[in-house]
Design a protein around this nucleic acid. Sequence first.
RNA 1: GUGGGCGUAGCUCAAUGGUCAGAGCACUGGACUGUGGCUCCAGGUGUUGGGGGUUCGAGUCCCCUCGCCCACCCCA
Length: 424
Amino acid sequence: MSSSPRFSALKGIQDILPPDSSLWQKVEAAAKEVFTLHGFQEIRPPIIESTALFTRSIGETTDIVEKEMYTFLDKAGRSITLRPEGTASVVRAYVEHHLYNLPSPQKFFYSGPMFRYERPQKGRFRQFHQIGVEAFGVDAPFLDAEIIVMLRVLLERLGLKGVNFEVNSIGCEKCRPGYRSALQDFFSARLEDLCPDCRRRYEQNPLRILDCKVERCIEVRRGAPRVTDFLCGDCRAHFDEVLSALTLLNIPHVLNPDMVRGLDYYTRTTFEVTSEHLGAQKAVAAGGRYDRLVEEFGGPPVPGIGFAIGMERLTTLLRDNEGVIGPFPDVCIAPIGEKATKEAFLMAGRLRARGVWAEAGYDGSSLRSQLRRADRLSSRYVLILGDDELSSGRVKWKNLRDGSQGEVDIRGIEEFLSAALRGR
RNA sequence: GUGGGCGUAGCUCAAUGGUCAGAGCACUGGACUGUGGCUCCAGGUGUUGGGGGUUCGAGUCCCCUCGCCCACCCCA
């Protein structure tokens, strides 16, 4: 090891290494397949945007905007921010390219890194990854239900178990102010019983008191007014239809009137998928409606809805459920001697051209160590290629799974292995 | 930003303030000149995260710093 400076990834930012990366690929492939079946197409927005895009949409006073953004000035002095979430960019693109002129709903999915300058902990990183979807132009409750169902289908296909679907409605700009003041009225007489954080929340965002984990605050908020009792007629009807659609579709879900959203743009339906195995950050996916956001970005009054899945959180759960086992080579070729090594090199190329994953030994290490290596890699087959084989033109093969072995003509190897590996 | 825990070999971890900081795993070779897994033998690597201090003597105690983990705030 040299004494020159050793680098490491930045705080809260991690490498995704094999075999973990193959689990990520599996998730991404399943998401693409499920989303496509539901009419969603991929959109690839940039990772950096002008800072104002996020401060507008997410909310000036949210923690994300106030203290968690990676913001810098470019060479022309413009304020640029690494995206802390995906929705703002998709809405920007939707408006910028006048996609509201296309038939509604327009449905998109995306995946990639997001950045928030936070203290890392379990399930929380400074660079993390989301797979998300957004749908524009339809405010019908069936779209809400369809999106929740789609999320469930995906998670089921991935074999994820032990998660809960929680749903809520936080109303619109008409009903929320009334609820907010009703909450403040309720807590105003009990302020001294609340924790310091909640006293601050009382002023800034009283809905957050419903989310507090302090024992005393949980007591105090018993009997607090529920957001679902303050919904206006339209919001009430919308939410009821979402719920009955979910019931119709046999989707297990729980009403959680205490569920709060961190971003300002949400309206009406909100939902979360939670797990008990994620530490303090138990949401593996979350989303909701944002019926005013397109308009706020200068577009027509077009409703929107979407969700995002936290990749690190999801893969944590999948890893716990089934572990991660990497892909295995189909065959390792163990050459003995220089001439055989050259032949093994060529043979590996021919096998690969036939779709067989072949590994050939590069140097003259012993047969024993080459076999040991093949075993460690969990290779299915080994081919032994030494002077005897070169002169006889017959290669020795061994099945490392059951120990069977034999020989095969050197020119028939591709056929032999293709047949032997069929149905792998 | 706040609080707690932890940093010793590639990995998992030992070592009362006291010789030269050890073991298992892994890796390579051999026992078995060309047959993996089991067993045995051999091989060698550390700025004890970094810096400073206390001490005759620091991996061990103190301070600073960096990093990791967990929690708060908040969030996927």
